[in-house]
């Protein structure tokens, strides 16, 4: 039986690498949103419910919206 936090940590690393590898910035923004939700899950597993709540609202909610808004106003493709 694998502990929950190991599974979540693995998914976090996959999400982080996925966001770095994505050529489309919109994809990267959404994957960063998923990453934030997984961080929130990890914090909840560790018992820090207040911080998890903040991460869910700020990290996964509003900052994803800000990233998407910025991508819409700039460019969707990365240069590198």
């Amino acid at each position: 039986m694998i502990p929950v936090d190991i599974i979540v940590l693995t998914l976090i690393i996959i999400c982080a690498l996925g966001a770095l590898a994505a050529k489309d910035l919109m994809v990267a923004a959404i994957v960063i949103g998923a990453y934030s939700f997984l961080i929130c899950l990890l914090l909840a597993v560790m018992g820090a419910v207040d911080v998890a709540f903040t991460e869910a609202t700020v990290g996964a909610g509003v900052s994803t919206v800000f990233f998407v808004a910025t991508v819409f106003q700039t460019t969707r493709r990365t240069k590198d």
Binding site: F53, T57, G61, V62, V65
Partner: peptide, 17 residues
């Protein structure tokens, strides 16, 4: 309960967004 000013502010702002 968990929560407070910061989270409430973000949720309230998110409704306008």
């Amino acid at each position: 309960s968990p929560g407070g000013g910061f989270q409430a502010g973000v949720v309230l702002g998110a409704t306008i967004i």
